[in-house]
Computed example of a mutant assay.
Amino acid sequence: MSETIAAQIENDKALPKVVTIMGPTASGKTALAIELAQAVNGEIISVDSALIYRHMDIGTAKPSLEEQAGIPHWLIDIVEPEQSYSVAEFCKDTIACIEDILSRGKVPILTGGTMMYFNGLIKGLSNLPNADEKTRAQIQLFIDEHGLEAAHEQLKEIDPESGTRIHQNDPQRIMRALEVYALTGKTMTALQGIKPEPLPYDFVQFSLMPEDRALLHKRIEQRFDLMLQNNFEQEVKNLRKNKALHLDLPAIRSVGYRQMWQYLDGVFSYDEMREKGIIATRQLAKRQITWLRGWEGAISLETGDSKNIDLILPYIR
């Protein structure tokens, strides 16, 4: 073995371990992460684009203080629902959390189902420019005058890959891709192809992957009904008192919140809201599973298996 390879192997061994537990919604990630944190003196960092919002507890299945079992949880309740929070901000905040946890001799455990966050952190973010209000205002003016479809067509001409990947009814991502090109003269696709150096951590990755899709669907339905029983409707009514909130915000587009908001607007009945909320949650789980199946480097675990903790521990100790 060459000295270079030997040095690299030794360096990899020296990297501090950071555990990730990924999985679709309602797969039991939180419970497993808490069990693991108790076993290895760990602390949990939430990787969930809904748990970041304050005042959104029931519909996000946010773990209560009792459910957190005395384990410190990071990146929960950090922004207001009307505020934006980017993948870049998540990565910056998460690295700060990891360093803090490691400095106290504890094990960072990242758990959640927002794969864009995991992707940005582990695989690296492209060097994209910060948002520019003037440029955004110009793009918004174009959309107001010509329509979102015209903006999407313009994106397809500039950046065919982004135009294909981004849905024609996704104003936020269409605007961002056009903004990046306007600010840099380079396409989002080109900039995303340039990856930074990997973070100095040994990511030990696990994914909860349910073999029985019907069982997962049942868990999703049961959890949604429990939210309704726990007065999810009143939670959204309280949110609606904030006049800064509307359906186009990422927070209110979250699964469940959008359907309840529309029900309160009179768009459909209570039973339709329930059905659409459950269906939307199943669709989210399907997207998460699809992403995880293409994810390299994660050890697959079965949802609900009592032996999962025993399977994880040898990789960490």
Rank of each mutant, 00 (worst) to 15 (best):
Q38W: 06
F142N: 05
G193A: 14
L313D: 04
L301P: 11
G23Y: 07
L125E: 14
L301F: 03
R213V: 15
Q140C: 14
H55A: 08
E149V: 10
Q229V: 15
H55S: 08
H55Y: 14
L32T: 09
D48I: 00
N41R: 13
I9E: 13
E3R: 13
W295I: 10
L125N: 14
R317H: 14
V18G: 01
E161Y: 15
F118C: 09
I76Y: 00
R213W: 14
P108E: 01
I122L: 03
L191D: 05
L239W: 00
I174H: 09
F206G: 15
G59Y: 00
G147W: 04
R282N: 11
P198T: 09
F268P: 08
Q192N: 15
A150R: 11
A214Q: 15
E145S: 13
F232T: 11
W74Y: 12
G42W: 00
L148K: 05
T164V: 11
G297A: 04
A69Q: 13
R219T: 11
E197R: 06
G193H: 07
L208C: 00
V204L: 04
Y181R: 08
P129G: 03
G70H: 04
M1D: 10
M260W: 02
I45W: 00
V255M: 08
P81W: 02
V47H: 07
M273L: 06
R176T: 09
H73D: 00
K243H: 11
D170M: 09
E296P: 00
Q192W: 13
T187R: 00
H167M: 15
M227R: 15
K307D: 09
P81Y: 02
T281N: 14
R223W: 12
A251W: 01
N242Q: 02
L191I: 02
I279T: 13
A177Y: 00
K17N: 02
G28H: 06
E149F: 11
L284S: 04
Q262V: 02
M175D: 10
L75H: 04
V180C: 03
K29F: 05
L121Y: 03
N169P: 11
Q8C: 02
L247Y: 13
A6V: 12
Q262C: 12
P63L: 01
I45R: 01
T290E: 04
Y257H: 14
K218P: 11
G256Q: 06
D310H: 09
E66M: 07
E35R: 04
I78L: 01
E133L: 15
A177Q: 06
T4Y: 14
E10V: 13
W261T: 04
Q283S: 09
T111H: 05
R293Q: 10
L148Q: 11
L65T: 13
G304F: 03
G42F: 01
L183Y: 00
L199H: 10
S207Y: 05
L32H: 00
G23E: 03
